[in-house]
């Protein structure tokens, strides 16, 4: 029995794509890593998590929806994503499945966490208002005051101090 299982583990990947626990990150168009743009925009932080499931010890991926829904709220006109961060790992439940003897040959899973900032273009009136208001005009690098990248970086350092988003609240995790 052990020999058969070992052979199965060795041979199946060769017949498949040669990959276990494969995750292809289907990201939305205009998701950016790295520097934050210095334009007037409304910025909303988001954080999502999802579980990817597999059969046969991670060889056969179970069909799942992408983390971003390109047909609904995520597909707002002009919406971009900045400072995207993704982490894939085995979480506690995933580890439990791996540790139960032979359980992972039936079902295995891996967690994906994603966070970043949704950037939506401001309406022309809002930009004009920001430009007319001297206090707002003095805000660093011409950003909308509530969305200064420096503040966002400070929030990263101290997540407890994160204020409620002024513009829009999105679900922390999508149901799949």
């Amino acid at each position: 029995m052990k020999r058969v299982l070992t052979l199965l583990v060795v041979l199946l990947p060769l017949f498949q794509s040669g990959c276990m626990y494969h995750i292809e990150h289907r990201l939305p168009v205009d998701a950016t890593f790295g520097p934050v743009s210095e334009e007037f925009a409304s910025r909303t932080r988001f954080e999502r998590s999802e579980t990817r499931r597999y059969l046969l010890g991670g060889l056969v991926p179970w069909p799942s929806l992408p983390l971003f829904d390109n047909d609904e709220a995520d597909a707002k006109p002009g919406r971009e994503i900045e400072r995207l961060e993704i982490a894939t790992q085995f979480g506690p439940i995933d580890m439990l499945l791996k540790l139960v003897p032979y359980a992972s040959y039936v079902l295995a899973q891996r967690s994906v966490q994603m966070k970043g900032i949704f950037v939506d273009p401001l309406l022309e009136e809002s930009i004009a208002q920001l430009e007319d208001d001297p206090e707002d005009a003095a805000s660093p690098e011409g950003l909308a005051p509530e969305s200064d990248p420096a503040d966002l970086a400070a929030e990263d350092a101290n997540p407890d101090s994160v204020p409620e988003p002024a513009i829009e609240i999105l679900p922390a995790s999508l149901d799949y």
Binding site: G18, C19, I23, H25, G58
Partner: peptide, 8 residues
């Protein structure tokens, strides 16, 4: 485009 996993 990004992906990760375990190859052969």
């Amino acid at each position: 485009q990004f992906s990760d996993g375990q190859d052969t």
